[in-house]
């Protein structure tokens, strides 16, 4: 557990998190590893994990029927994967697979939710960290929507 805690506190997402909270979070954590090409989650699967990426790169894909899958975002070292674990009905919205060997810490969604319910301050602390990440990804999506590099005439 000691090593997980020290890894978590070094990750930008948990930067400066108070020790008691960190201990609570660590209680839900385990190390995971994905080989290149391995799926981490698939659309509509139950979203029970919140991944803290330590190393590697993960592609978030949408696969339209009859077409090749399209990668819409990649997340890598220092970033996070997943927020569906916090929002009912707790289902993944995208497919994600590792592009290269990826190491992460998986936080159990159910466990985290339970601890957040018990300690609303922890819940608020996590939300304050999660929301900017979601916001950035939304802003990035808006920019992608503009297709600014596309042929303009």
């Amino acid at each position: 557990m000691k090593t997980l805690e020290s890894v978590l506190i070094k990750h930008p997402f948990f930067e400066n998190l108070d020790k008691p909270y960190l201990e609570l979070v660590t209680g839900c954590a385990k190390n995971v590893k994905f080989e290149a090409g391995q799926f981490i989650c698939q659309h509509d699967d139950e979203a029970n994990q919140f991944y803290i990426i330590r190393h590697g790169k993960v592609a978030l894909e949408i696969c339209p029927p009859g077409k090749a899958p399209v990668t819409v975002q990649t997340v890598s070292e220092g970033e996070i994967l997943g927020w569906a674990w916090l929002v009912p009905p707790y289902r993944w919205h995208l497919d994600a697979h590792a592009i290269e060997l990826t190491r992460a810490i998986a936080l159990d969604g159910q466990c985290l939710r339970k601890k957040c319910e018990e300690d609303k301050n922890l819940g608020y602390e996590l939300l304050k960290r999660l929301l900017p990440a979601i916001g950035r990804s939304m802003e990035a999506t808006r920019l992608q929507l503009l297709d600014i590099y596309g042929a303009r005439d």
């Binding site: 930008p12 790169k57 592609a59 978030l60 090749a68 899958p69 399209v70 990668t71 819409v72 975002q73 990649t74 890598s76 220092g78 592009i99 290269e100 950035r136 990035a140 920019l143 992608q144 297709d147 590099y149």
Partner: peptide, 23 residues
């Protein structure tokens, strides 16, 4: 380097260029 959308042959970053700044 990053691209707005990628296919399976692209092993690099996908996302807007601003996401590269922290990296």
């Amino acid at each position: 380097v990053t691209v707005d959308t990628g296919d399976r042959s692209w092993k690099g970053n996908v996302g807007v260029v601003t996401t590269l700044v922290p990296r």
